[in-house]
């Protein structure tokens, strides 16, 4: 890794977005870039697991309900692999009990769609403090 890339990795932490919904995959990266993060988007948990980004990801923004492997299942898989990536869950279902359970399992945040930019930034700051 060259020194320039190293600097980018540190100053522009990579935030990965995993969501099957296209409008989220399109809109979130621009906002994250505005916040100063580098981003990568994935349409499914499986694609994310197979990617090279896994080891560079400083924070994962993860949709709860997805076809195939769900967000919580990916969380379990990462725990199993000892990949300690801070996770911010996002969900379109306003189910507080699921959120509480995900936080118990170690998630840093759980945001209900639609969420505000400030709520997201707060969660990201918390996530990066953890990592």
């Amino acid at each position: 890794m060259t020194s320039t890339q190293e600097r980018i990795a540190i100053h522009r932490s990579l935030v990965a977005v995993v969501d099957d919904d296209e409008s989220v995959r399109e809109s979130l990266p621009d906002l994250l870039k505005e916040f100063g993060f580098a981003t990568s988007t994935f349409s499914s948990a499986e694609v994310f697991l197979a990617s090279d980004c896994l080891h560079e990801t400083r924070c994962l923004i993860l949709d709860v309900g997805m076809p195939g492997m769900t967000g919580p299942e990916l969380q379990q898989e990462l725990i199993r692999r000892r990949q300690n990536i801070p996770i911010i869950f996002i969900t379109a279902d306003r189910d507080k009990t699921i959120c509480a359970r995900l936080l118990e399992q170690g998630a840093v945040g759980c945001l209900f769609k639609p969420f505000s930019d400030t709520a997201l930034l707060e969660a990201l700051n918390a996530a990066l403090r953890v990592s």
Binding site: S27, L31, P114
Partner: peptide, 28 residues
Amino acid sequence: TASIAHEVNQPLSGIVTNASTCLRMLSA
């Protein structure tokens, strides 16, 4: 209502995020 909420919240999420980004880009 839960299933409708889910369906509607997805694009709403895009709207809110896009609008926030838009504001930030304009105030830069």
